[in-house]
Amino acid sequence: MVTQAEMDGEIAAIGAAYESAVSAGGAEETQPRLDYPPYRSSLLRHPTKDLHHADPEGVELWAPAFGHRDVGTLEADLTIQHGGEPIGERTVVTGRVLDGDGRPVRRQLVEIWQANAGGRYIHKRDQHPAAIDPNFTGVGRCLTDDDGTYRFTTIKPGPYPWKNHRNAWRPAHIHFSMFGTEFTQRMVTQMYFPGDPLFALDPIYQSIVDPRARERLVATYDHDITQHEWATGYRWDIVLTGAHRTLMEPEEEHA
């Protein structure tokens, strides 16, 4: 197992090569690399061939619909799923889901999952010897509103160790799953909290080699969301990839 210092060297070398490519006129990379050797589990799981260009057709121009039959309003509050209050910092995470043209993605499904305040998941594969919180599962769902806004009440997750390299720790994060108005906008990502000292050390976060693209995954502390004597608040907006179907519709339909 390599040390964190060796891992830092691998991450830095890829970052420096990217920076010099960009300053030589290379394209900005807004998505993670699929082939990113510092994240060891990716070695045998990334395609080696270029992704093949496809113009979306048929069902790809539409997304599945979800409604209040699918998602209850209480599912957006991860702190009320058991008999008592969970341990940790109660926090509200909210923001908007937009498409690549800035239009709100309305009444669409957002799913989240996360570790508890001690960095432990309710998952049989999680071996981290931190306490399980009987009052916190760490799974939530909601539908965006007409403005594309989602809102969850949860507990700020803790960082947790993993086995990528010696003394590897993930920065605290919430896993997010989003749907757009078209199937090709489907995305899963992770939201981070500002100022985490583990950012520079984490190969999953650093697999997005562009610093500005990484920062778009970091929520902003927002005191206007923070609630008096109740919860801290963070804002995090999500932009999905561009839509296609709407481009073909008459302008008045989405004016």
Binding site: S42, D101, H123, M187, R216, T241
Partner: peptide
Amino acid sequence: MSRAPGDLTPTAGQTVGPFFHYALP
């Protein structure tokens, strides 16, 4: 600020990780 006002660059994806089984299925 995590995203500049008016910036419509798509948000980056990240791996689904090892712990999705109790959340997504």
